[in-house]
Nucleic acid binder design. Sequence first.
RNA 1: GGUGGGGUUCCCGAGUGGCCAAAGGGAACAGACUGUAAAUCUGUCGUCGGACGACUUCGGUGGUUCAAAUCCACCCCCCACCA
Length: 381
Amino acid sequence: MNILENMPSPGDFKVTATDGAARSGILHTAHGAVRTPIFMPVGTVGSVKAIAPDDLDALGAEIILGNTYHLYLRPGDELVARRGGLHGFNAWDKPILTDSGGYQVFSLSELRKIREEGVEFRSHLDGSKHLFTPEKVVDIQLNLNSDIMMVLDECVPYGADHDYTAKSIGLTTRWAVRSLDYYSGIRRANLMFAITQGGTFTDLRTESIRQLSEYDFDGFAIGGLSVGEPKAEMYALMAHTAPLLPAGKPRYLMGVGTPYDIVKGISMGIDMFDCVLPTRNARNGTLYTSLGKINIKRKEYAEDDGPLDPACSCYTCRTFSRAYLRHLYTSGELLSYRLNSLHNLTYFLDLVRGAREAVENGRFAAFMAKVAAAYPDEAAL
RNA sequence: GGUGGGGUUCCCGAGUGGCCAAAGGGAACAGACUGUAAAUCUGUCGUCGGACGACUUCGGUGGUUCAAAUCCACCCCCCACCA
């Protein structure tokens, strides 16, 4: 028999276990496979802030994010291409997913204009104008050589009305189709994911998925959540949306979320997550633990000699006291960013790994109950 | 000893008759952060009261004035330069 027949190729995705709606699986990319459910640390400008690739490896990170908009502006995607793509440039040799700039349509809304053709940004760095078409965004991501390219989309802000959102999902679909058409002419090993939208409207969420799932993307994302809506509403939208996404492809909830959000998403059958919370909050003193959220700057920790999280085996928790971590934060020491980020990423990565193992062992409900106990406010919603 | 400058709420520091419980910064305390314009941002920051407000405060004591952190007198302390 032919060995090649059994060799997985980039884009192959297989669900290997389920427990209720929750599932675990494996996704193959040009830089190796990732086991789902997965949490992807965010490294917008090509670096997971305060953390080196060898640390990421040690934490068990399997895939990280980069951003099209940021890397295009600086240092430039062609410069990165000349250095062997993002992997060659930043010395991370495992999979990389790049966001398209669609989130910047939302977060930098003051600095952009949306047209049928694409989005025109005024650079947040120097004010210069740049037109991001769906095709250009593919080219940039090919230069970065990301393993998973996201199509350009419009991330609709919370509060957008039905009429606006309905028009927006049409635009997002047309952009997605243009991206796929353009890429099919140059198809390489890079995967391409579509992004569904629809704001807070279940009918539009359904319609966006209906339109996009007609096309052969390598995965489907839920976009436009956690943009200011009440958390209960986000959960309701997740619950509505997740089961509608094609079951045979990876399902990616973009930008979400807190530990409980992620476990909740897994319970609904979502496979992939990314979020800046563990790294940003680490730098701002909020640490996630098996005991819940800890604000390490609080005075009550000033003479607390215990570990940050007694259940955590990361370098930070093995080595330092809460009192020391508080001191580092309070003093603005650079080590604070590193140790805090190391811990928060460990917590998120361990959490999702634990969820995957729970699914594989048919014990997901019990696992989720434990996480809910640490985050009762969110679990109550 | 002389001359000049200065002592303001935890710190630095503005304020030189009423608009001053007193700018601004820092510290402190608390909060936020979800496909990163974020090592960022917000709130509190004399005491008591929910608020309107009441009370105490600008080195000390006394005085001028309807009114003083701000003007006057004396005293205490600090700094610079000169002897």
